[in-house]
């Protein structure tokens, strides 16, 4: 279990850096697939079986395919972007500094406040029946709201992508 966690952790961090650092968006997408898969494994270690499946199906299956479509649609034959200096001065260094500072602070806080783990979770935590029961009884309103969010997203995408001319 511990070994599995650390393997997944190394994969997650490595692929995350690859996603952010690669020049080609396609490489980023590939990295992201591996990243999401490793995250699904971590969900399993956290006894979240349903979430692990969702992670693979929705993220790796749906969202990343969407990314790939967009990349295929747009960047073929185009010059690679991010050539030359960016328009913003003093962006990279402060961004990295802010990230490192946030990391340090959160790590410090986590180490201080959450040094002990609680007792073992109940046996049926994260199983599909338990998840379904929670989702469709206790959290049914949130579930229905999600449906509405998706509907709005669909309408918005159709409106924007369907239009021929836009102006900035």
């Amino acid at each position: 279990m511990v070994v599995l966690f650390w393997v997944c952790a190394i994969v997650l961090v490595g692929t995350a850096i690859a996603v952010v650092g690669s020049r080609q968006p396609v490489h980023s997408v590939v990295g992201l697939i591996v990243n999401f898969s490793a995250l699904a494994v971590l969900f399993l270690t956290l006894s979240a079986e349903f979430l692990a499946m969702m992670q693979i199906i929705i993220y790796a299956g749906a969202i990343l395919v969407l990314f790939l479509f967009v990349i295929a649609l747009l960047t073929v034959g185009n010059q690679p972007i991010e050539t030359g200096e960016g328009r913003l001065a003093h962006q990279t260094v402060p961004a990295i500094a802010a990230g490192v500072a946030a990391l340090g602070l959160i790590a410090f806080g986590v180490r201080t406040a959450w040094s002990q783990s609680a007792a073992s979770p109940p046996a049926d935590l994260g199983t599909v029946p338990a998840f379904g029961t929670a989702l469709l009884t206790t959290h049914v309103f949130a579930f229905e709201a999600t449906a509405f969010v998706l509907l709005v997203a669909i309408i918005g995408v159709v409106l924007m992508a369907g239009r021929k001319e836009i102006r900035f």
């Binding site: 968006p25 802010a98 990391l103």
Partner: peptide, 18 residues
């Protein structure tokens, strides 16, 4: 933090979304 820094540093919108 990796995602945050990536969002702040990269200029390709697709990479930023990732």
């Amino acid at each position: 933090v990796i995602g945050l820094v990536g969002f702040l540093v990269r200029r390709n919108p697709i990479t930023m979304l990732m």
